[in-house]
Amino acid sequence: MTGVLKRVGFLLGLPAVLFALWWTASAGSTDFYFPPLSRILESLVDEWFGPRLMDDVVPSLLRLAAGYLVAAVVGITLGVLIGTYKRLRDFLEPVLEFFRAIPPPVIVPILMLVFGIENTMKIVVIAFGCMWPILLNTAEGVRAVDSTQSETARVYRITGFARLRYLVLPSASPQIAAGLRQGLSVAIILMVISELFAASDGLGFAIVQAQRSFAIPEMWAGMIMLGLLGFLLSLLFRLVESRWLAWYHGLRKAQKAG
């Protein structure tokens, strides 16, 4: 029992202290830029968990999901191809290195020219930006398939789809997961950035709108909302990953212990 209490204490101790500090320090604040936390939270509950949830948060999340999904499918497919064929990898490697090195937000102005400012542009921006970590990690994972397993599969004439399904993808999945995780944080950044330029709805749009109209508590609330979203999405990812890769984490633990 005390063990549980202690763990809860460690988990919530510092956050509680920080929250209390912010609350008391800002309580009587008349500083325009740093409104009292109570007002920020009021706005968070009234606005962000009220009408804005459907108007701004959901459209943002839908675009995020669409872009991320496209990036995952394209990235993993191309990654498997590039990881499998050495010549192809040699051929494309410098090109991929270059595209990966382009800071993703830079392509927003270009894609705005091509796709306008509608949803398509935002989804393409998200997909394009977060595809590279997924693609490169997948290629790396596929390349590093255990050679004994690979040769065993060959001896048993396991080829084509079965080889992909039972050998390549499982053995590359830890790397694919690493790529997907990196891709997710890039995707969130791009979700916000793509809405800063030109948009009529979305989290990024709403926050900047609040800032430009000097609705400071709303702006803070939006920032907190965005932070919560980033936190929850990464939590969700970790949950999915720990299920998906339970075998791998178990294997690692066993290897470390042995």
């Binding site: 830029y33 950035i193 926050i207 920032m223 965005l226 932070g227 936190f231």
Partner: peptide, 12 residues
């Protein structure tokens, strides 16, 4: 704090 996208800080 870590997963909070730093672009959230842009308005501030």
């Amino acid at each position: 704090l870590r997963p909070i996208p730093s672009v959230a800080l842009i308005p501030l």
